Structure formats: C-alpha cells, structure tokens
Amino acid sequence: MKLALFALVTLGAVSLTQALSEGRIEANRQAHQDALLESLAPQGTARLVPAPAGDQGWQALDESGTLLATLQPSSALGYAGPVEVLVALTPQRRVTAVRVVDHRETPGLGDAIERRKGPWVDQFEGLARRQLDLAPQGAIEALTGATITSRAVIQAVNEAVLAAGSPRDTPDASNQEPSP
C-alpha cells in the first residue's frame, strides 16, 4: 500500500513538472531554431518566411520581397541514426552553409560534423549539387573513421538541394546551375 501511494505521488510530481515546464521547453526550442535560422540568413535579409505551401523550410527575403536564400531542412540515416541538417542555399541552389541540427553519431569520430567541434561542414560552402560527393568524384573529404556519417551528411545536403526545387531566376543569374 505504501509503495503504491509512493508511486502515485511520484507520478503526480513528474506529471506536474512536465506540465509546468512544457511551455518553457518549447519556447527554448523555438528560440534556438530562430537563432539558427537568423545565423544562416544572408546579410540584407529583411524577413524569414515559411516556404510556399507544401514545401518545408524558410525563405530569406529582402525589403522588396526578392529571394535571397532558401533554408532547407533535411535528414539522412547515419551510422547511429538520423542526421538532421539545415542547409542554406542561394537562389541558384549553391550551398552557402550547412549546420547539423541533431544526430547520434559516435562521440570523438562522427560528432565532428558539428560546426562547434570542427570546420568539416564548412567545405560545403559554395558548392553546387554536382559537386556534393566524396572525393575524388566530388569536393567533400570524408571524416577519418566516419565515412558512413560523412555520406549521410552529403546525402542530406543533396536531398535539401533537390527539395528546394530548381534554381530561381535573379537579375544577375540564369536558370542554369553555376559552374565551379
């Protein structure tokens, strides 16, 4: 009887704590996402808006509503589970930045995909889709000891580029994928 009462009180305390902190947790999650989006948006961005209906991601627009960048989420299966990324793309679909949002890769090996742990993801900057492969076919050097993780990030970035659609016309660019 005492054990059942203790379990009931403990369950009530945990449930109350969850209910009281749920809003704060969601607010912190949203603030983190907003900060990440703002850090990837190019200079001159006046506002970030959700992608058109049916699409995931966000668009960075200038004061006149011209598209400056697309911020596209994506994921792929890594060594220890899904690797979630956020990819910033120019209107011509060149990668300007990649940030790993969540993963469960091996500490000390696969976790080097995080920008705070190393510059590995910086090698994606400026690349077009046809360059997004491991060297020598592509421009990406794999993480030593973490080839599966490296391939997962590359796959997620490729899928983000495809999900973002075809390149957009801009006043100074054609609809063709830019050359390296």
Score class of each variant (00 low, 15 high):
8 L>E: 01
8 L>G: 01
10 T>W: 10
11 L>G: 15
14 V>L: 12
14 V>F: 09
19 A>G: 14
20 L>I: 13
22 E>S: 13
27 A>D: 10
27 A>Q: 12
28 N>H: 14
28 N>P: 07
29 R>F: 10
32 H>L: 14
33 Q>C: 03
35 A>H: 09
37 L>V: 00
41 A>D: 02
42 P>S: 03
43 Q>P: 07
44 G>C: 05
45 T>G: 06
49 V>S: 04
49 V>F: 00
51 A>G: 06
53 A>F: 00
53 A>W: 08
53 A>L: 06
56 Q>D: 12
58 W>F: 06
59 Q>K: 03
65 G>P: 07
67 L>H: 04
73 P>D: 02
75 S>F: 04
78 G>W: 04
79 Y>G: 05
80 A>T: 07
80 A>L: 02
80 A>M: 08
81 G>K: 06
92 Q>I: 11
92 Q>R: 06
93 R>D: 00
99 R>N: 04
104 R>P: 02
105 E>S: 08
106 T>G: 09
106 T>K: 05
113 I>S: 04
113 I>D: 05
113 I>N: 04
114 E>W: 13
116 R>V: 10
116 R>L: 10
121 V>I: 11
121 V>T: 13
121 V>M: 00
124 F>T: 05
124 F>G: 03
128 A>K: 12
129 R>V: 13
145 G>Q: 05
146 A>R: 05
146 A>L: 04
150 S>H: 11
155 Q>P: 02
159 E>T: 00
160 A>D: 04
161 V>P: 09
162 L>E: 13
165 G>I: 05
166 S>M: 05
168 R>L: 13
170 T>K: 08
170 T>C: 07
171 P>R: 12
174 S>Q: 02
176 Q>A: 15
177 E>C: 10
179 S>Y: 13
